[in-house]
């Protein structure tokens, strides 16, 4: 931790700059009607998120975000865009009610977050429960994240893998049936 003391201010600056950029990306995303621009912007958002996670020392999550959020899902969205019009239709109603709802939810979340312990506070409850035992590293794997995911929380990861499998199987079931019903072609 001694290494980090000097860099704290710069780190906070970088993190805040990234957060501002992400907020900007979201604003532009909400305003844009061209779906191609929307897909590219959501890729930009994911890369900003990945950079932020690197700044927060969560490299494993950052890697996943960059690969899934910015990489594969951008390609999948482009593939979906290939099947529909590239311009979003004008909404029939003014979005005031949904806007008020999401604003209220956001405020509630911020209010709830005020009670959370400080970021990286070693005295926080979450760091005093099972984390010390994980860090004793009885499985002798240098990357604690891997040890927790694959060994200590093996059941959770088995569940996650099953969820991914179910998602894939669901997609297969949905898209295949359509093809059979529509005769030869995929529509």
């Amino acid at each position: 931790m001694g290494r980090r003391r000097g860099g704290t201010i710069i780190e906070t600056l970088i993190i805040n700059a990234l957060l501002v950029l992400m907020a900007l990306a979201v604003l532009v995303l909400a305003r844009t009607r061209n779906l191609f621009a929307v897909v590219v912007l959501s890729g930009v958002y994911s890369f900003l998120m990945a950079t932020l996670l690197v700044a927060l020392d969560a490299v494993d999550v950052a890697m996943t975000e960059a690969a899934v959020g910015a990489g594969v899902s951008t390609v999948l969205l482009l593939g979906a865009l290939h099947l529909c019009k590239s311009e979003e239709a004008r909404p029939a109603h003014r979005p005031w009610l949904p806007l008020a709802l999401s604003g209220a939810t956001g405020l509630l979340l911020i209010y709830g977050a005020l009670d959370l312990p400080d970021f990286a506070d070693p005295a926080a409850p979450i760091h005093r429960h099972v984390a010390p035992r994980y860090l004793q590293n009885e499985v002798d794997v240098p990357n604690v994240v891997t040890a927790v995911l694959a060994s200590f929380r093996g059941y959770d990861t088995l569940g996650e893998t099953t969820v991914v499998f179910t998602a894939g199987a669901g997609i297969v079931a949905l898209l295949r049936r359509r093809r059979h019903k529509g005769g030869g072609d995929a529509q």
Partner: peptide, 22 residues
């Protein structure tokens, strides 16, 4: 985990891509 994730990503991509034009 790697085998399932790789398979699912590829399958989703294959299915979407095949729907485009033939």
């Amino acid at each position: 985990v790697a085998v399932t994730v790789c398979g699912v990503m590829l399958k989703i991509f294959y299915m979407f891509a095949a729907r485009g034009d033939g």
